[in-house]
Design a protein around this nucleic acid. Structure first.
Length: 587
RNA sequence: GGUCCCAUAGCUCAGCUGGAUAGAGCAACAGAUUUCUAAUCUGUCGGUCUCAGGUUCGAAUCCUGAUGGGAUCACCA
């Protein structure tokens, strides 16, 4: 639409001797109820024209119509100049832009970005909250890649600490040698089972101590189980052979379980970091900060940073005994990542309960003068809530990722069978289809919402398969493929003599694909893509309903409609691909 | 209590740097299939954009305050 902006600048110069900047030209899409495709808002131009908004609109409209062949007509309503572009303009957009081989492809921009996501704890299986994180991270990475970045997908695994010792201890005490093989339980679930068991036994001990007269706080500290867990952690840190051995075994169970879930979710990683390797990092950064005077030492030897001038608090960065806290290792890990990849940007996909932490982390790195600190970004997303409130693993109110995927596939199967859509499918094709549709429904459901907003998930109400959903878009794709297989494309012809509104709307929407990718990348927002693809699917279905493709009026129209369908199908497939959602050929 | 985030139709959500009568989907109701897949399409119903001020020719959008909800303010991660 740049050429219209330029033309308006010219018009203002010629009509009013005014020098407009492009930013002063306010163009927007024409609303559906009016004639036209592009609208110029003229209110702000009246100070140059010294005329009414209507008169200004008319002046400029006449000028544009006379000067530009692509402008077929205009109408003025109050301060709005609605411009109609000619069919030949839209056909040109379609044939020369949308159908181009490189449509929607960005040239490499020479920038490297790391997207860290997933970052699970190895003491329990993944739940719905992790699912949102994984889908967001994967999608953002894919979008950035599409926008021209070189992308590194990273996973920082929290594989050590007291919580893992809890699972280990419970298994040691009550497990009786149980393994994933002996029990048939998926590894991450098995370890999770002992994490829950620990908590149960721990609570029992607390209650017993309280009966003996201890306060809640004392009891929590004195319960034998927690003491044992803490001892186990010390042993781990000391490299105790037996503890390390058990730790490795149980973690390997968890990893086997995770990789299965990751596979079903369709996410992957280029680089793994393990906290067992990074938890000691960051101490040299503490020294660096002390030298530079960014940090200061309190009499007890603990190291702090004073962020009160920035509206934050004083923050501990190293304990008095010289051991790390959470932020210490995050400082070290940030440096490690940068040393490994020298990326221009680094995105942390982490829930919004850690907003404060990342604010502090980034601020500290900036104050330390790290040149790369300005490229750090916390992609903060809202929690997934159930109707009953927050998910709590200890209260058993979590939606387990594996169960959820199973249910989605089951629902997809049920719906598909009800509709009788699987004629001619082999058994493996059926399973594939159910997976694609079930995951499509789930992924779309989670990704269509703005990441920063919290998300309500009602397990009792199954995810929709109709309307503004993944399966709706997938279905549209299948429809398109179905038409295309019935007819082969012949070499390009000139196209139809005229366009119907449904065809023009579709071209207009399709032409917005590149800028949609651009916006989604800049905002780190898959929802922008999700909503865009939905618009395409809706517009296509309307077109499909109104106009016959195979029985078109003439051959040129038929070829054009086939190409239009093919282009829509491609954009749907690519767009859904940016969300990590597959589209089927048939459904 | 300090700080941060959120509030749009009964429900779930869009709404781009301020622009027209605030849009979709679900739910409810009424229609469309001798025609390329009806997981579709069309229509009806549904709104004090939480509230009160302010800036502006113009505010769901920007500013201030209030209310409600959430998060966070650990020598936990």
């Amino acid at each position: 639409m740049n050429f219209i902006t330029e033309a308006v600048v010219k018009a203002a110069k010629s009509l009013y001797q005014a020098d407009l900047t492009p930013a002063e030209v306010n163009l927007q899409e024409t609303r559906k109820e009016f004639e036209g495709q592009v609208t110029l808002v003229t209110f702000s131009l009246t100070k140059f024209s010294r005329k009414s908004p209507e008169q200004t609109g008319n002046d400029i409209g006449e000028f544009l119509k006379k000067e530009m062949k692509d402008i077929a007509g205009f109408n003025v309503i109050k301060g709005f100049l609605n411009i109609s572009l000619s069919d030949s303009y839209w056909l040109d957009v379609f044939y020369s832009q949308v159908l181009a081989d490189d449509f929607g492809a960005f040239k490499p921009n020479g920038k490297k970005v790391m997207v860290e996501y997933s970052s699970p704890n190895t003491n329990k299986p993944l739940h719905l909250g992790h699912v949102r994180n994984n889908l967001l991270g994967y999608s953002v990475a894919t979008i950035l890649q599409a926008a021209g970045y070189e992308v590194i997908k990273a996973n920082l695994v929290n594989d050590r600490g007291i919580h893992i010792c809890k699972s280990m201890l419970a298994w040691q005490k009550f497990g009786d040698g149980e393994t994933p093989e002996s029990s048939g339980i998926k590894g991450d679930h098995l370890v999770g089972k002992y994490y829950v068991l620990f908590d149960k036994e721990y609570k029992k001990q607390i209650d017993e101590l309280k009966v003996l007269g201890q306060s809640e706080e004392e009891a929590k500290k004195n319960a034998p189980l927690i003491k044992e867990a803490q001892e186990m952690l010390l042993k781990w840190e000391a490299g105790d052979k037996e503890v390390i051995g058990l730790w490795k075994t149980m973690n390997s169970w968890v990893y086997a379980g995770f990789s299965e879930t990751y596979k079903r979710l369709g996410v992957d990683f280029d680089q793994f970091y393990y906290e067992s390797n990074t938890y000691l990092l960051g101490k040299d950064i503490i020294d660096e900060g002390l030298e530079k005077g960014v940090f200061f030492k309190k009499p007890d030897g603990s190291v702090w940073i004073d962020l009160t001038a920035d509206g934050l608090d004083e923050k501990l960065v190293l304990r008095a005994d010289g051991t790390s806290v959470y932020i210490t290792q995050d400082l070290g890990t940030a440096q490690l990542k940068y040393d490994d990849f020298h990326m221009d940007e680094s995105i942390y996909v982490v829930g919004n309960e850690q907003d404060y932490h990342f604010k502090v982390l980034f601020l500290i790195l900036e104050k330390l003068g790290k040149s790369w600190a300005k490229g750090l970004y916390h992609l903060s997303y809202g929690m997934v809530d159930l109707p009953s409130g927050k998910m709590k693993s200890r209260e058993g109110t979590v939606v387990d990722a594996d169960d959820l995927i199973d249910e989605m596939e089951q629902t997809a199967k049920k719906r598909t069978e009800e509709l009788g859509k699987v004629e001619g499918f082999s058994e493996t094709e059926k399973l594939q289809l159910y997976h694609i549709i079930g995951m499509g429904a789930l992924k779309y459901f989670l990704l269509k919402v703005d990441p920063k907003k919290r998300l309500l998930f009602d397990p009792n109400e199954s995810v929709d398969f109709q309307g503004h959903t993944g399966p709706f878009i997938q279905y549209t794709h299948a429809r398109i493929r179905s038409v295309l297989t019935k007819m082969s494309l012949s070499p390009l012809t000139g196209g139809p003599a005229r366009l119907f509104p449904e065809e023009r709307d579709l071209i207009l929407l399709l032409s917005q694909f590149p800028e949609t990718i651009d916006i989604a990348a800049k905002e780190h927002n898959p929802a922008a893509v999700a909503n865009y693809v939905y618009e395409i699917a809706k517009a296509f279905n309307k077109f499909y309903h109104e106009h016959s493709i195979l029985q078109a009026e003439d051959e040129a129209t038929k070829q054009f409609r086939l190409l239009l369908s093919a282009a829509s199908g491609k954009v749907i497939k690519k767009g859904m691909g940016l969300l990590g959602i597959e589209v089927p050929e048939r459904m």
